[in-house]
Amino acid sequence: MRSFFWSLIYGLLVLLLEVCGTYEVDPPQVHAQSYAQRRNVARPQFPPQRTLNPAATDNQCQSRPLDLVFIIDSSRSVRPMEFEKVKIFLADMVDTLDVGPEATRVAVVNYASTVKIEFLLKDHLDKVTMKQAISRIDPLAAGTMTGLAIKKAMDEAFTEQSGARSRSKGITKVAIIVTDGRPQDQVEEVSAAARASGIEIYAVGVDRADMQSLQLMASQPLDDHVFYVETYGVIEKLTSKFRETLCGLDPCAMGHDCEHICVNNVSNYYCQCREGYVLNVDKKTCSLKKVKAEVIQDPCMCEARLAFQRQAQNALQDLSARLADVTRRVEQMEIAMGHV
């Protein structure tokens, strides 16, 4: 009986191993544990992780020109290996973009309890030197002053002195914030000011990131500007999402001043009017189209004939009435003469 029991246990174990072998588990897809749990549990050993290679380039789309500033959280909660993942994500994003003096310019703002601009929009105008600069970024360790980082980016990184293009050139300004925690300062007002100045904000939350804070920072619509990943191990997967977004930016969706219809152009937009309206001199507003009165000719003279028939009929009716009146008067005269 005991041998049968152990045989049954052995058979179940074999079956369980076969089932586990059939369904391979992809570690990045496993639901994230809490931060405390991950601190206390040793991580399994996986194949060699990808590292940042500044020399490798892979231009996967031709994006429209941008002034793009990454604002990255390197507080104490972001461990060294996780911060390397963030740097790989930045490098992948650089590969995705069309980088150059007349194309996309990139800056990086690093923050914790202090804020450091790693490089400005004017500093690196090619992919290789930009990725080399990214590889040299070190974490700052303590604190999460996200609001301060946004303000510094707005006041210093997005200025023309730092390499941002003038508003007249119509270059879209984009900030991508990456954080895994709750801001230790206020982000609502400074984020609103940044958006009001023309900066489109994307907020990327990792692990314990506070969703409400992400929503306070991001531009509208939130569904297109707030992203969340469970671990830094899968943050690279956001590259494809941003590729779709940044390679297909919709200038009209970013905000326009057309009264009727906004039409996307290669690097900007122009305005059109609805049917029955014309575009005014300001190329933005529309006015009702003036209708010119036209004289319509009547080649067959049908209308003229109808008019003549009406006139003739009226004249005949008038003559008939007069004749009847004359006849009545003659009859009255004859009656009168007969009585004399």
Score class of each variant (00 low, 15 high):
252 C>H: 00
206 V>A: 14
129 T>L: 09
215 Q>I: 01
130 M>Y: 01
127 K>S: 05
96 T>N: 12
143 G>W: 08
61 C>A: 10
4 F>W: 09
215 Q>R: 11
334 E>N: 11
221 P>V: 01
262 C>G: 10
71 I>H: 13
247 C>Q: 00
86 V>H: 05
153 A>D: 04
45 Q>C: 08
184 Q>V: 07
230 E>V: 03
237 K>V: 06
278 V>L: 14
179 T>L: 09
140 L>S: 08
117 I>N: 14
1 M>T: 14
148 L>N: 05
297 Q>E: 14
15 L>S: 07
301 M>R: 09
216 L>M: 12
210 D>F: 13
155 D>R: 05
53 N>A: 12
233 G>L: 03
31 H>G: 15
104 T>V: 06
21 G>I: 10
291 V>L: 12
156 E>V: 04
79 R>A: 01
233 G>Q: 02
233 G>S: 08
178 V>S: 15
29 Q>F: 15
77 S>G: 13
142 A>L: 12
249 L>T: 07
198 G>P: 01
132 Q>F: 01
156 E>Q: 12
106 V>E: 02
329 R>P: 00
234 V>R: 12
132 Q>T: 04
170 G>I: 09
337 M>D: 03
12 L>Y: 02
140 L>D: 10
336 A>T: 06
262 C>E: 12
77 S>E: 09
193 A>R: 15
213 S>Q: 13
208 R>Q: 15
22 T>K: 10
321 A>P: 03
199 I>K: 01
162 S>V: 02
201 I>T: 04
275 E>Y: 00
212 Q>K: 05
252 C>R: 01
305 R>P: 02
306 L>D: 04
78 V>T: 09
309 Q>F: 12
148 L>D: 05
61 C>L: 07
316 L>V: 09
223 D>P: 09
197 S>G: 02
226 V>C: 04
316 L>P: 10
315 A>H: 08
164 A>P: 06
71 I>M: 11
234 V>Q: 15
34 S>M: 02
13 L>K: 08
85 K>M: 13
214 L>M: 11
326 V>A: 11
320 S>Q: 14
126 D>S: 05
115 V>C: 06
49 Q>D: 05
294 E>L: 15
214 L>C: 07
84 E>K: 11
51 T>Q: 13
165 R>L: 01
6 W>Q: 15
16 L>T: 15
332 Q>M: 02
42 A>C: 07
317 Q>I: 08
313 Q>V: 12
11 G>D: 14
248 G>D: 10
76 R>K: 05
70 F>A: 01
321 A>E: 12
36 A>H: 11
107 A>F: 06
292 K>G: 11
43 R>I: 00
54 P>G: 09
2 R>K: 09
15 L>M: 11
120 L>V: 03
287 S>D: 14
62 Q>F: 02
183 P>R: 14
150 I>H: 04
200 E>F: 07
321 A>I: 05
107 A>H: 08
322 R>D: 12
29 Q>P: 14
232 Y>M: 08
130 M>V: 00
114 T>I: 14
63 S>T: 11
39 R>P: 00
